[in-house]
Design a protein around this nucleic acid. Structure first.
Lengths: 338, 338
DNA sequence: GGAGGCTTGTGAATCGTTTCATGAACCGTT
DNA sequence: AACGGTTCATGAAACGATTCACAAGCCTCC
């Protein structure tokens, strides 16, 4: 492997000069600069990032640890993060914990060993032990899609209560009075918050609490949604509308309706959550609560850069909360037609 | 930042001993080992990967550069790769070129600077100039989802001709004689190969070449598919079956059919390609050509590890070709009913 | 009791960069 | 000719780990 020393020898200069050509070309006279760049090209020299990092003390990559890379929502977050990071000359290491706290722990210690410039984390363990021990590592990080437990951590999230409220209010306005909420595991804060919002919309409209039936899927996937859909069809009083905890579940419900010959939206209206690309692409385009995932990725990275930057000392930890937005499509028309 | 030297001082031993405790504990007597590990815990020491890498000469991460992280196919490849990499103690740096040769070039030089252990690449530029110059860097790499241009490169791919053939043969068996192939940009080898396979199936069945109409979408996305779908409905002789270059396009076509009141599969059968999760999740579950993406990611990584391993010198470059498989679902029943 | 063999631990060299104090060479001015 | 001021280039000292030749201590065996 050719090093800066070989380049120096070839160009007949010292290693310091070669380094200057690379990092502050203006310090070097034009003709030695030319000699050095020629030598670099001839030898195919590529500077060693690890040596550089060892000397300078900080790396030029940041990490992004997501819960589920198969979920398009996180892919959007990642793209937002990557956009900002590349603008700042940072590489992004994208990793997938798959909701597994052990994998999460493994990655976090990898990040610490790599001395990444900072990390964006969607935490996988409920009690936050991993994140807590990561905090001791002195590495800047921002929690994504979850509010920080205390105010010594930056976080970027989306107001899930508002999201639930938007969805159910929309259904109520369209005339629905018998609504099912197909929830995910209630251990997740997101799921609970969306439910709270849904209940608030019910109360606000003066409907009785029984107007909302909650059924719980064990995972937030299409398969679980399909399952929830068929369970929902067996309910004593068939609902006229379903609000789903995310789009994957909604797609599953939609499929179950089709399989059972139940027409959407004529017999049952459906509202999803996340507004992933496939929501608009469904056979009956899905009404969905849009989360500004891309912007969230951007915002999180900007916070991270601020915390990891030169004026880090006067950095104030912040909790940024985005507002979701309802996107109405064919799966839930604005007024009930039956 | 606490270094190995601080640990040594704290434990009252030399730095060499600390290093031994970390890397070959059996060289150290139990009680000094205990003293050292205690010191490590007390100080919260984390070893610096860059220093280690500088000394040892090789890194413990590999890179995976995909064309489009939003495409579930590549997500599956990534998961397969990650599984194998983690088993071998390697971290994976997942990057997204977004089909942009400039971004690709940027990432490739980042990989070179990082001295990654190896790279899995789905090339973005047609002429392969980026990959060609990367090859000079002496870094092991495997081309994914494309066969290598020459035999000095490992590659893992899937036989696209067979895939096209499977799909169209299936449609012909079901009685279709007027088939549309909704292709992607014919600049992509994949698209051309699938078309070749489709044509072969037509010829093989003794049908005239006109039995297959090709329309081209400019992108392989749902939106382009929707567009292709509505164009297809305007054709003089309405086809009874559509074979799509991938599932995203197929989902778009499906949606266009629904919007126009054309029933699937009764009026038009649809076959997709890739068998992404959302294919099975579509309102009418999509028949699709399954590509073993996960296994492909695994195989590619195994090849890479072999090439980057200790017996690299006796490594033979190989081209691994996987066979696709047809998954029949509701969007294209086995026999034509009309 | 000396030779030889384990077991443990040491300390210095090394990896490839960046950075910084130092100095050489040259300029125009007095 | 002596001076201060620029402009360029140098060489050595870090950064934090790994590795390896070597030594100290102890045991065993003839």
């Amino acid at each position: 492997m050719v090093s800066i020393k070989d380049v120096a020898r070839r160009a007949g200069v010292s290693v310091g000069t070669v380094s200057n050509v690379i990092n502050r070309p203006s310090y070097v006279s034009p003709d030695t600069r030319a000699r050095v760049t020629a030598a670099i090209d001839e030898l195919g020299f590529v500077r060693s990032e690890s040596a550089r990092q060892l000397r300078v003390g900080r790396s030029r990559t940041m990490a992004l640890l997501v819960l589920d890379i198969a979920n398009p929502f996180f892919v959007d977050v990642a793209r937002g993060a990557e956009r900002v990071a590349r603008g700042a000359g940072l590489g992004v290491m994208l990793c997938n914990s798959g909701h597994d706290p052990n994998v999460e722990a493994e990655y976090l210690s990898l990040f610490a060993e790599q001395r990444v410039r900072g990390a964006l984390i969607t935490p996988a363990d409920a009690n936050g032990a991993n994140v807590e021990s990561f905090k001791r590592r002195q590495i800047p990080f921002v929690m994504v899609d979850r509010v920080g437990p205390s105010d010594d951590v930056c976080s970027v999230s989306i107001d899930d209560e508002v999201g639930g409220e938007l969805a159910v209010r929309h259904l109520i306005r369209a005339g629905h009075t018998q609504i099912v909420y197909a929830n995910g595991p209630s251990t997740l804060a997101q799921c609970r918050d969306r439910q709270t919002g849904a209940e608030r919309a019910i109360a606000e409209a003066g409907l009785p609490p029984e107007a909302l039936t909650v059924i719980e899927a064990d995972q937030m996937t299409v398969a679980s949604g399909r399952d929830a859909g068929s369970r929902l069809l067996g309910l004593a009083s068939r609902p006229t509308a379903v609000f789903c905890v995310n789009d994957l579940v909604a797609l599953g419900v939609l499929q179950a309706m089709f399989a059972a010959g139940v027409r959407v939206p004529d017999d049952v209206a459906i509202v999803g959550y996340d507004d992933i690309e496939f929501a608009a692409a469904a056979a009956v385009p899905l009404t969905s609560v849009r989360q500004p995932a891309f912007r969230m990725g951007q915002a999180a990275t900007e916070l991270l850069l601020e915390e990891a930057g030169d004026e880090a000392e006067r950095h104030q930890h912040r909790r940024v909360v985005f507002q979701p937005e309802l996107v109405v499509r064919a799966s839930s028309p604005a007024s009930l037609r039956r």
